[in-house]
Amino acid sequence: MAAVILSAKALVRSFGGLRAVDGVDLDLLSGEIHALIGPNGAGKTTFVSLLSGRIAPDQGQITLAGEDITRLPAHLRVRKGIAYTFQITSIYPRLSVFDNVALAAQARGAGNLKAEVHAALLRVGMAELSNQEAATLSYGHQRLLEVAMGLALNPRVLILDEPTQGLASGEIAGFVALVRSLVPQTTVLLIEHNMDVVMDLAQRITVLNHGKVLAQGSPTEIRSNRAVQAAYLGVDHAET
């Protein structure tokens, strides 16, 4: 069995009276693609925000390759190799695509910016858009730009928060291939509502509901899990 790279123990975070994350344990195995799913408001974004350091936990412990990083500020966690792409697109709108990715590459002290940026853009298929202003990109391209920024960081753990949201179905196939090509060098934690993508990519799945872990296992196990069907798939069906 592969080593645990990122581990969360009994994480708790409340907003006012609401326990958005309520005692979550999760071990990410080095080199896996791990999907985090759950209905809207389950606490997925909050949970990965705790991992990446965007917000501080009320209780619990986070370790990266055995090192306690619970109190480490966000930017230092990124330097240690935890990259995060935002659910709500967050780019530098008035800078060029090149500059967006270059900022990621130079933040980790890359030597040859041009080459590294080009490589990252190539992987998401945006190499020709290098000089375009980011704000003028289509929504799908802005999502991919975020992924490119994450790639340029060369992370050990890449956290993707609903990356396929807003992508056209044609783009999704390319994206799935891209994520698959990242492992095992990079470990991927993927938050995703598109079940096809999840079942296709993930080796393991954790289901979150009301801030708690509802189930964990392989895609097949999760698919046949009654509780999950009730809480999550059921809800999804009711909505559509």
Partner: peptide, 18 residues
């Protein structure tokens, strides 16, 4: 480029390790 990053999006910059 870092200067512009501060103007454009500080949160993003933090999450790039800056």
């Amino acid at each position: 480029r870092l200067m512009l990053a501060m103007r454009e999006n500080e949160e993003r910059s933090r999450m790039l390790g800056l």
